[in-house]
Simulated scan of single mutants.
Amino acid sequence: MIKFLDLQKINAQYRELLIQKSTGLIDSGWYVQGQMVKQFEEELAAYCGVKHAVGVANGLDALTLILKGYLQLGRLNPGDEVLVPANTYIASILAISESGLVPVLVEPDLQTMNLDVLAAKNKLTDRTRAILNVHLYGRVSWSEELSDLLAEKNLLCIEDNAQAIGAIFKGKKTGSLGDAAGFSFYPGKNLGCLGDGGAVTTNDDELAAMVRILGNYGSQKKYHNEVKGVNSRLDELQAGLLSVKLPFLDAENARRREIAQRYLKEIRNDKLQLPQDPANETEHVWHLFVIRTENRSQLQEYLSGKEIQTMIHYPIPPHKQPAYSEWNNHSFPITEKIHETVLSLPMSPVLTDQEVDEVITAVNNY
């Protein structure tokens, strides 16, 4: 069986280092908000090229705390509108709702499956204050047109960087392009821990301080609570394990690009539409390799018969979910087409050349 993502094999590469780091933590006697979190925050900030990184409990909390931080600082107000791609994973939208802000869904570009800037312009109102820009599937969602729009309308830009750590736009890494960014270190991400984890990056001193306060019960001094916060802190153990894996991230992303280039060059089947290849291959870190086909169930069943695992990211769009029943009758035809036709092929840095050969051969023979 060719696994869609072999997490055991990925982490086995670093087994001894992970054990050493875990043993060091056990022996230290300091298990929350210690030196391992501080070290990883410094490493992540340096990697992304920003002033601040703040560890939090997970990727959803990262986005939520950014938005709540802006509310506390008065840069957003309850009821303000935040534009967000309609085809994103629902977590991006949940963060907006949870913060008392209004998510406004924007149809994506069908080719990149990222934010369509023209469509975003058409959704602007006098209540629009921010764009939550998602680097979906590992592809950078950024352009000069987006920068111009943000400047012209004085909008905040929050990057959802859960899937694109290490991706680059004109020499700058994702996580440093907007005003702030949220990261997820869920095990299946390009940089994954062995549990849940997340972080916020920003160059904004005030926002970084507020995110840290909000994630620590609203406190920066023990038993002194300045604001109504939550408990959302990156676990000391997970921070240590992420510090082990971060130095290998660029090499793993490079392997993902090698596999993606083979798929793009060698898959030849007119029943499929392959993802668009960016002009600069270092932009994309290929968290997922997502094809589109009108016969998705048939193809998935066929590949399963060949012992090749695939996944659907994502089968149901947010506006069709019961959680957002108020949108269930709304029509987003591009988003719906994407969710009805996407299929993710195996993609991980530990796929062997032989396994890639087998995937390509099977897809071409379909």
Rank of each mutant, 00 (worst) to 15 (best):
E43I: 07
G100F: 06
T202S: 04
A91D: 12
Q238N: 15
Y302N: 09
V56F: 07
A239Q: 10
T310W: 04
N280M: 11
A91T: 08
P78C: 04
L299M: 08
L25P: 09
V211E: 13
D80G: 04
K306P: 13
A162W: 00
G192V: 01
N114F: 06
Y31M: 15
K189N: 14
P346F: 07
N365F: 05
Q20G: 13
K121C: 04
I334S: 10
P78L: 06
W30S: 12
T202I: 02
C157W: 01
K123L: 15
Y366A: 06
L241R: 05
V350I: 13
T335F: 04
N58H: 07
L18D: 12
G74L: 02
V363S: 11
E226V: 14
A180I: 02
A239T: 10
V82G: 02
E98K: 15
G182H: 04
L25G: 15
Y14N: 13
C193F: 05
V200E: 00
V200P: 00
T112Y: 05
V285E: 07
R255F: 07
F40N: 01
I168Y: 02
R129Y: 03
D148Y: 01
P278F: 14
L105G: 06
A86D: 15
P78V: 03
G24K: 10
F248I: 08
N364A: 14
Y89W: 15
L303E: 14
R139F: 14
P85E: 09
L146G: 10
M113I: 10
E358C: 05
Q8Y: 13
E266P: 06
G59R: 04
I267H: 11
I10D: 13
L207F: 06
G79S: 09
V50A: 00
E258I: 03
Q309T: 11
G198L: 02
H319N: 09
D250E: 11
E301M: 05
A45L: 02
D148V: 06
V200N: 00
P247V: 08
L343V: 01
R129L: 03
E358V: 01
G166P: 06
V342C: 05
D353V: 01
V117E: 09
K51M: 01
E236H: 11
K121G: 00
V50S: 01
D61S: 07
T201G: 01
H313K: 14
G69N: 12
R15P: 13
A239E: 09
F4V: 03
S28K: 08
A164K: 10
L343E: 00
I2S: 13
E236V: 08
T335V: 09
E41R: 02
L101D: 04
R268G: 07
P247F: 03
Y70V: 03
R262I: 12
Q72W: 01
D179N: 09
D250K: 09
I19C: 13
A323D: 15
A62G: 06
E226S: 14
H287S: 10
I165M: 10
G175N: 01
G195A: 12
L241F: 03
H330Y: 07
R212E: 03
E294V: 15
Q298W: 05
M347H: 02
K306D: 06
L5G: 14
N154H: 05
P315K: 09
K68E: 10
E145L: 11
E107G: 11
V350W: 05
E326A: 12
S176H: 00
N225T: 12
V285F: 12
F4Y: 12
H313T: 11
D160M: 07
P346V: 04
G166M: 05
Y186G: 04
L124P: 02
